[in-house]
Simulated assay, not measured.
Amino acid sequence: MGEQSPDGGRKTAKATERAAPSGKSTPPKKAAAKKGAAKKGAAKTAADEKAGAASKKASAKKAAPVKKAASVKKAPAAKKVTVAPKKATARIKGTAPAKAVVHPPGDESRTALVRRARRINRELAEVYPYAHPELDFDNSFQLVVATVLSAQTTDLRVNQTTPALFAKYPTPEDLAAANPEEVEEILRPCGFFRAKTKSVIGLSKALVEDFGGEVPGRLEDLVKLPGVGRKTAFVVLGNAFGRPGITVDTHFQRLVRRWQWTGETDPDKIEAAIGALFPKSDWTDLSHHVIWHGRRICHARKPACGACPIAPLCPAFGEGETDPEKAKKLLKYEKGGFPGQRLRPPQAYLDAGGRPAPPLGAG
């Protein structure tokens, strides 16, 4: 009974071979040790994962307030856009909504520029229906002398000075023969009185010697007179002879550049550039409209933007005072002219012969 049969021994060996991997048998103690180590490793990994998750959750809780604080940021203040007030455009009918810049630099076609320029002139014609030369004169001789005297001074100052001058020297012959010292004394309030005395006496002599005492009606003749340039010549031609011309004075130069009609700075080039935007028949009245607007509203230093009737059409809106009430205080006109100034309607110009035409209405 104590011995195993040979068959039973072979069966036990085969069973052992099937249980051992790779054809090798593993001792029972080592297998148990490996199994315990694997269980410990798995437990440690699970513990580490739980600890990591807890750590992440805690850090997320701590970081949450910072994230919330960072997300609550004040949006940057929007840049204030200045727009033309409705009050300033009340006198313009059918205009588009007011904008700060209607036509930005370089973003306007030639056709659009011509249309905008002509519309501005039409609007100004409604605002200043009686725009005219603001120098007082009764004939072409007085006009050319007064225009020469208006350089570097105001028309108001000239109008205060010329009555005494023309009372003493009513004709070119009288002024040509005048004593320079006496003329200087009369012209002293106009500034640069010595140079102006030389010019008016010189042009009077030229009129007597070269034109029979008459003011010529041609540009090429007028510019030959002492003290007379293209600006003065066009004032005389447009207002004494009815011949169109553009008067490029300081106001005109400032406004056409401010309105971006041209970028030229030379008076002759400005004259050519603006002349190309308008029909020739508009040139004289255009000059009056622009100059009147420059003297009354669109000043050099403090333009009254808030009271400007062409604000929606002006690319430079906002350079001056935009508040309507404050802008009103900057206006320098009263019923179309300066306070106390003698106004005349456009019909009060001279006729082709240089004689004053009878006024047909009140200014």
Rank of each mutant, 00 (worst) to 15 (best):
A43K: 14
H293C: 01
A31K: 13
I270F: 05
G227P: 00
A195T: 14
P76L: 07
C314G: 06
D221A: 06
P346G: 06
T262M: 03
A352N: 07
T232S: 09
C308N: 01
L313T: 03
V215I: 07
K328D: 15
K93I: 07
I274Q: 10
E173C: 10
P309M: 09
L143K: 02
F211R: 07
G238W: 00
G337E: 05
F278E: 11
D138V: 13
K168S: 14
M1P: 10
A77C: 07
E17M: 15
D107L: 13
K61T: 10
T284N: 05
G275L: 11
E49S: 15
C190V: 13
D266A: 03
K93R: 04
A64H: 12
A31C: 03
P76N: 09
T162G: 09
K280G: 14
I120W: 04
E108G: 00
L187A: 01
R355N: 15
P267L: 05
L207G: 08
A69I: 03
P312F: 04
A206Y: 07
A167C: 11
K56W: 03
Q4L: 10
F234P: 00
D323E: 06
K328H: 14
R258S: 03
A206I: 07
A53V: 13
A60E: 13
A327F: 01
S204A: 15
A177V: 10
A15V: 09
P216H: 11
Y169F: 12
A195H: 10
Q253W: 11
R118W: 00
G41N: 15
E126S: 08
R355V: 09
K67L: 11
L277R: 02
I246R: 06
A177W: 11
R91K: 13
A32L: 13
R118Q: 12
A54R: 13
R122I: 05
R257D: 00
